[in-house]
Design a protein around this nucleic acid. Structure first.
Length: 270
DNA sequence: CTGGTCACCTGGAAGC
DNA sequence: TGCTTCCAGGTGACCA
């Protein structure tokens, strides 16, 4: 379930080995994921150098100078660096070869995306409407307070709205709200500035801790499936229905919000 | 414009 | 054992 931390760890995992390298081959094995795959990608990037690997929200942007390859991992996607000759398996949809190294996109549930953006990345509709980066300086308690005035939707959904703030998915929304002591059912527009002054730092701390946890497995990243360590961190509430709250011992509860499961502690979060 | 719901896809777990 | 059903999740589409 790649949320912002997993995508950032992926970026840090592939960037050093690929930046400045020249594309030697491209293989596409599927017609589409969320969107049709760019079947002519090879014509655009073979012989060109990868200049940078950037992240915007949960999107990765590989800049080749003449355009950018936008990648999204959906909920089951992964990117790995492998030796060129590594045989492809069932859900390996896209390979980009850089000499003897291979960048491989695997995505069993096909919720991910690969798009070739020949124009300015910011002009693409998928990127143009994105909200603030939660780790950027602009994401302040006062900004979130102002942006949510008049919103009747609950805070859990507001945090997961990528047009407001990017990168926070179901896991980190529940975890951040627990750490801030806020009931996930509270309307976002009714939360005080004082409470956002607690929530914003907790969002940052949650994301940064997850990046650090994944970062510790970066060394394995190159040769493994990239999943080691990411999800083995200790969640406070996520996926712990019926288990004791790590802070007060009360039973962790779950509920459905917008067709998603939310986990919370009714004693710690009010 | 806002908010709420659903489809997309597949593998794995749970239920029978 | 083997079949069926449910669930997970990010995001855009769609509707009220």
């Amino acid at each position: 379930m790649p949320e912002l931390p997993e995508v950032e760890v992926t970026r840090r995992g592939i960037s050093p080995g690929l930046t400045g390298r020249t594309v030697s081959a491209v293989t596409i094995r599927a017609a589409r994921l969320r969107y049709p795959l760019p079947q002519r990608l090879g014509q655009s990037i073979i012989g060109r150098k990868l200049l940078t690997v950037n992240r915007r929200g949960k999107y990765l942007l590989l800049d080749f100078g003449n355009g950018r390859l936008l990648l999204h991992l959906g909920m089951s996607g992964s990117l790995r660096l492998l030796p060129r000759a590594t045989l492809a398996e069932k859900h390996d949809h896209l390979d980009i070869e850089f000499g003897k190294t291979l960048l491989r996109l695997r995505d069993p549930r096909r919720f991910g995306a690969a798009l070739w953006l020949s124009g300015e990345a910011g002009e693409h509709p998928l990127l143009a409407s994105l909200g603030l980066e939660p780790l950027a300086e602009e994401f302040t308690p006062h900004w979130l307070f102002s942006a949510t005035r008049g919103r009747s939707s609950v805070i859990k959904q507001a945090l997961m709205d990528s047009h407001l703030v990017v990168g926070i998915g179901n896991i980190y929304a529940s975890e951040s709200l627990f750490r801030a002591g806020i009931d996930p059912r509270t309307p976002a527009g009714k939360i005080s500035l004082k409470r956002y002054e607690r929530l914003v730092p907790e969002i940052r701390a949650t994301l940064e801790a997850a990046i650090a946890a994944g970062g510790s497995s970066l060394r394995d990243f190159i040769h493994s499936d990239g999943s080691s360590g990411y999800f083995q961190q200790q969640y406070f509430v996520y996926g712990r229905t019926g288990e004791p709250c790590r802070v007060c011992g009360n039973s962790v509860k779950s509920l459905r919000q917008a067709a998603r499961t939310t986990f919370h502690c009714t004693r710690c979060q009010r």
